[in-house]
């Protein structure tokens, strides 16, 4: 698909073909960020499909996805470039007259790879809130001008402006400078209706009845309980698959108890569920 000619309808179709069930807000915001040539900053709780947006876009535009996973202590040598010291030292010792600060001696890291790619790529900067504030500031030049400065080489400008998606779990407040440079999208947990659609799309053999019961149960767990980690969409899918493996076609008390470990990844959360809601009450609520 050609970005210049892209319409909202085409994007919607692309998302649907990639199996990503999206709300109108997600579609319009993604469309605007693509057309404005601005990075898209996606925030929201873990497991709501933030990273998936980048994967879907790489499918839609049939292009490479370059991923930079952020963590505390990430710096430009891991994110942007590093000189190939071994090669440089060997060259010096061989006493050949050659510029050792040229592209041949450059080790490209994800950001530089995205800028120098021959074709427009999707660059995913995942969990930017985990990186340090200094790294965030370092990204400013890249995000607004699609170029970076390498002291020994000068300014490297993007051959093709990459589609940039940044994700954040909101663990740390991002700077105003970064937010200003991006279009902003907040993804929350899906509504019951949307989650049914997601289950049907990912696990079609689940059937309407089971999908509805699972989506409603997960919705109640998320909204009624104060958990350390709320069940994500992927856990809903895993739960559905597990129930199918156990030949369950309905959510019943016993089967809920047997499969609690699939939706609760924290022992404390499991206890909270048993204490404050419990499989019996959940079953009753689903059948009211």
């Amino acid at each position: 698909m050609d970005l210049k000619e892209l319409t909202i309808e085409q994007l919607k179709e692309g998302f649907a073909n990639a199996g990503y069930i999206s709300e109108e807000e997600t579609l319009i915001t993604t469309y605007l960020s693509l057309k404005l040539g601005k990075p898209l900053l996606v925030t929201g709780p873990p497991g709501v499909g933030k990273t998936e947006i980048a994967k879907v876009l790489s499918k839609i535009f049939a292009t490479q996805l370059i991923r930079l996973q952020c963590y505390e202590g990430l710096d430009e040598t891991k994110a942007l470039y590093e000189w190939d010291y071994k090669k440089q030292l060997l060259m010096i010792q061989s006493k050949k007259e050659e510029n050792i600060f040229s592209q041949d001696y450059l080790l490209e890291r994800p950001l530089l790879q995205a800028l120098l790619a021959e074709q427009q790529v999707v660059l995913l900067i995942d969990e930017i809130d985990k990186a340090d504030e200094e790294f965030e500031a370092f990204l400013f030049e890249m995000l607004s001008d699609f170029q970076v400065s390498i002291p020994e080489l000068g300014t490297v400008t993007a051959k093709n402006i990459p589609i940039i998606i940044l994700t954040s779990n909101n663990e740390r407040e991002l700077s105003d400078g970064l937010k200003r440079r991006c279009a902003f999208l907040y993804l929350d947990y899906p509504s019951v209706e949307k989650e049914i659609q997601i289950i049907n799309s990912k696990v079609p053999q689940a059937g309407q009845q089971l999908s509805r019961e699972i989506a409603s149960a997960v919705g109640k767990i998320r909204s009624q309980l104060e958990l350390k980690k709320k069940p994500s969409i992927s856990e809903t899918i895993d739960w559905t698959r597990s129930l199918l493996l156990l030949n369950a076609d309905r959510l019943e008390t016993q089967i809920i108890d047997q499969t609690l470990n699939i939706i609760f990844k924290d022992e404390e959360d499991k206890k909270t569920f048993q204490r404050e809601l419990g499989s019996e009450k959940l079953y009753q609520a689903l059948n009211e």
Partner: peptide, 27 residues
């Protein structure tokens, strides 16, 4: 303004989403 050039202004949902995407950066 650039964003509004890209959407149908008579579509209130699209209009509101465009405003939100560009102006609201804090949930």
């Amino acid at each position: 303004l650039k964003a509004l050039l890209l959407i149908d202004l008579s579509d209130k949902v699209a209009f509101k989403t465009a405003l939100q995407a560009v102006l609201v950066k804090d949930i």
